[in-house]
Design a protein around this nucleic acid. Structure first.
Lengths: 236, 236
DNA sequence: GAGTGGTCTAGACCACCCC
DNA sequence: GGGTGGTCTAGACCACTCG
């Protein structure tokens, strides 16, 4: 662990724990330099992490202050390495998956383009219904290049693909580009998700990238509108 | 304009214009140092801006490469200062507003808490339907403290509140915390938005903060699912 | 082994806020 | 005027990739 991350983590703890309540000023950058025996640029990097996460604001000429964020958000913000599959975001709760489809196909042209593949390459074609505490929450349609993510099996799909990619394949996930909208479920989706009344779905179309910039996932997931919300902080 | 922003802008232009096509390696950090006669840390800041925007990836030991992003995304990413009201995100198109409600009230307890007010403070209570090219797109329910945003008038509501805040009041917007979900419209909303069939809405609940950390807006906006999508890039 | 980006230092000066 | 964060320098060493 590098210095600026340590400092960021310590500060974050103090904010989340309430040692720095909302609205209070935190230690000056130059004080933090002394306290941790680091240069000011290193302190700034640490503090900027928390700004990015939405926990604090800096005022030139005045100091750095804890933002007034609700407790629930506070925890969410401090946890969210913003990067997680469904399994991770439901940490603590029992997550299960029902596999509707698992095959290997050639990608359609538009998806091949998004994943930088040729139409005679192969991709996994996965459809899963994912449940938390045995309640269906989301149906997920996913395409992944078999070259990049070899060895995918049903057993893995039942758990977490992201865990497999990171822990077994030792690949790192760099970023995800998302498009979020609202849609109505099809009849099949209503059945899979156990929806009886009129309930909209939150659709997230995602292209996810590895560390080296290669796209490794194209997916569309449709979440029950009454069970899921997507949170985001944008700064500057 | 500071140095790192200039460098970031120049690089962004080269990427968006196609001078650096997707997948290509961009100039080395040490080369950019020489080219712009700046230190390496300054170059890194510039390059990191573009990483944050999702345009490029850095590979330690190899170099920095343009991500393969669709052209439409490319422009969106490079534009999006991620910060905009509805008016700004529809730049170029004619945006109009119909004011459904504009009054001054005491905030309810939960909203007072979110805006750091007491229940005997006052807030504007605004409901607007906003249209692009005269087509209703979104209905917006907004509360704003009158102390922070004085002088709001109907004329302003018809245009852009954000423009008023930034250009007239000279206040700066620092961040927004959002919660996004999918809902069904009420009867009134269907009427206001001209919805006849079964169409879901994308709901965005937002608390927006000024430069100095004070929350100045609590709003819930409900967008026609067939007209609007929300885009987001998350890195690391 | 040569070359890349990642982290870090110990300063410096500037822009801004508040007294 | 005194103190804050913002930007920047000119180095240094480290971790990683690749041939």
């Amino acid at each position: 662990m590098v210095k600026y991350q340590n400092i960021a983590n310590e500060l974050r703890k103090k904010i989340v724990s309430g040692e720095y309540p909302p609205g209070t000023q935190i230690a000056l950058e130059r004080e933090l330099c002394e306290k941790y025996s680091v240069s000011r640029i290193t302190v700034k990097r640490a503090v900027d992490e928390l700004v990015k996460q939405g926990l604090i604001v800096k005022r030139r000429g005045s100091g750095t202050f804890v933002k007034s964020v609700e407790d629930s958000d506070m925890k969410a913000l401090s946890m969210s390495r913003q990067f997680e599959g469904f399994t991770e975001s439901y940490q603590g709760k029992k997550v299960t998956s029902k596999i509707i489809k698992f095959s290997i196909v050639h990608p359609k042209e538009d998806i091949a383009a998004k994943l930088l593949l040729k139409s005679d390459d192969f991709v996994y074609d996965v459809v899963r219904v994912r449940c938390a505490l045995d309640v269906p929450i989301v149906i997920e349609y996913m395409k992944m290049p078999i070259q990049l993510i070899p060895g995918l099996k049903k057993e893995i799909l039942k758990k977490s693909i992201y865990a497999y990619i990171q822990n077994e394949l030792k690949l790192k996930i760099q970023s995800a580009h998302r498009r979020i909208c609202a849609v109505m479920p099809s009849k099949e989706e209503k059945a899979y998700l156990g929806i009886e009344s009129t309930l909209p779905l939150l659709e997230i179309e995602q292209i996810a990238f590895l560390d080296d910039g290669r796209p490794f996932e194209y997916s569309v997931s449709r979440h029950r509108g009454d069970k899921i919300a997507f949170k985001s902080v944008s700064v500057r």
